[in-house]
Design a protein around this nucleic acid. Structure first.
Lengths: 331, 331
DNA sequence: CTGTTAGCGCATTCAG
DNA sequence: CTGAATGCGCTAACAG
């Protein structure tokens, strides 16, 4: 059973390759119903499948969208990817996957490679808000997700960071905390971290730069523990709470607190962005903000394919996907 | 700046396309050093990048490996994928991603699509141990990971399931448990679940079919809670322990126990397969088996590319990646 | 309604 | 050491 080509089935049916090609592309008006039927049957019998590679060469559009993610290991990201894949499948697109492992230079590399593979479109989950490579992408064939560039040059799909944190932290405030802290990876140039921080500031009224605590995602957390110690000492007798900007940061906080012999919700209160499965079985459960990662993926694809089909370049938009709250008992 | 082709740079340099092609493919002996230099320079100046699509058509090998995963949302799987991507990149292969969302028919679909996209090779993380589509894949261009087929027809890379569970459970036994239970998703035809169960049986000496508890990964867990209740009632005054076959199952168990008002390690002991970041911050920390998911990914790619390059079909092998133990205080 | 033909960008003989 | 010619599988005018 050799690999069939369009020529083979044309010969078998007794028509030209052009006719078969037309059939494959749905130009049914260009041939008689009999021919259609004969071609259809022959294709079924031979299990013929057109070569997407050849088609890609001929049409200069190989129906694949390239995805660059910052870190596939992040549970948020894998859910987004599943959304992307699902939506692409619905529209007959494949997905070419790349992962930067949180390394900006890897990302640059990945994106330029994707561009050179002549993908139809690009979906980028950026490592940081800025990168020279971003200058090379256009709003005609790309969309960004999760994190927004400092300058929005292409459509960007993010979760509702600012407002949802503002709302959530306001609720924490209702519990009469004396003081609240925002805990995050180093803010750097990452929009999600900043937007959540700003939502936090808006709710609390604190001034920027204060009530902010950063952890490094690398091994050593002694510095972080020291800062925490100081904060807790400064606030003896007061009610102090923390808002962590994602699940992994929350883990750092909890580990550090455990190390200090402190327990929530007694010694401190805590709430977090991101809703991970294990948060519900903590004792007590972690109150958090649930984001619809899957929808971010599907939405991004929808927008992208829309653009690809209507070759008109529009103004870049910022789409915010709403969140929900899971109130449990951690604060 | 139009898209350059091999013809363009051939013309610019003043040689034929064949020479440029030879240069691109490292056949440097076929041209003078001067020509090499001129071509090299021209390529640099024009930012020329050969079209992988065209090359794919011409060579009938488009340097992409297709990946079919059972569920990208599984933390295990995303780490594996990152390993796959990394190793592929090192060897100049791209990765075409597909996800079955734990649906066997989606998987069949995905794999047959990948086959029709003329990928160079296939890596499959199967939904179940058996599927008609597996008959269509050969050991020349595919490897399976994580779960093994009931009949090993292609090289398969898995974690050391049986032995590591056997060892781990033996240690639990040293703590003088009166009785131990294995908790799992329904065993079905999934090798990882069975192999871990068999390791459990080997260590405990129980007979197959006993001391086994299954949870469904769908919403309702009332049945599971009932079984648990019964077990705990049957064993009042005795020391009872549980081994969960992965992190998500552990979560179900913990949630159910919480519902019953029971606490580890007091009312029961627990250990688990899989080492997830949150397990260390549970109180007390969860003792578990740590598997090297990343290595599974890289290993799979290594084996696959090996096969692709040495077109000789060998006997399918089963490769087991070793695990390590994280002993904390949950039993 | 159907067939001819010329590419798409590159690799690969085979001559020179 | 170099180039002309041919083909990979398919699409897209353009004729008929």
């Amino acid at each position: 059973m050799e690999k069939m080509t369009i020529k083979d089935i044309a010969k078998l049916v007794g028509v030209s390759t052009a006719t078969v090609s037309n059939y494959l592309n749905g130009n049914l008006t260009k041939m008689s119903p009999v021919t259609q039927r004969k071609i259809a049957e022959m294709i079924r019998n031979t299990n013929y499948v057109p070569s997407s590679v050849a088609r890609g060469l001929a049409t200069n559009d190989n129906k694949t969208i390239g995805v660059s993610v910052a870190d596939i290991t992040n549970p948020f990201t894998s859910t987004v990817l599943s959304g992307i894949y699902e939506e692409c499948g619905k529209h007959g697109y494949r997905v070419l996957f790349t992962n930067a492992s949180s390394d900006a230079s890897r990302e640059t590399d990945n994106i330029s490679k994707l561009q050179n593979q002549q993908v139809s479109g690009l979906i980028i989950d950026p490592v940081e808000g800025d990168s020279p490579i971003f200058k090379t992408i256009t709003n005609r064939d790309a969309v960004m997700i999760d994190r927004q560039a400092s300058q929005i040059k292409v459509d960007t799909v993010v979760t509702d960071n600012f407002e949802s944190v503002k709302r959530f932290v306001s609720k924490m405030l209702d519990e009469e905390y004396d003081t609240l802290y925002y805990v995050s990876w180093p803010l750097k140039n990452v929009s999600t971290r900043w937007n959540r921080y700003n939502g936090f500031l808006e709710a609390t009224g604190y001034t920027s730069g204060t009530h902010y605590l950063s952890v490094h995602n690398t091994g050593d957390t002694s510095e972080f523990v020291d800062q925490l110690t100081e904060i807790m000492e400064d606030n003896v007798g007061k009610k102090v709470g923390f808002f962590t900007m994602n699940g992994r940061v929350l883990i750092r906080l909890l580990a550090a607190m455990e190390f200090l012999g402190l327990e929530y919700p007694i010694d401190y209160g805590v709430g977090s962005y991101e809703d991970l499965d294990w948060m519900s079985i903590m004792k007590p459960g972690i109150s958090c903000i649930h984001q619809d990662s899957y929808a971010i993926g599907t939405k991004a694809v929808e927008i992208l394919l829309d653009k690809l089909n209507s070759k008109t370049e529009a103004e870049p938009r910022l789409i915010e996907v709403p969140t929900t709250e899971k109130i449990r008992a951690s604060y």
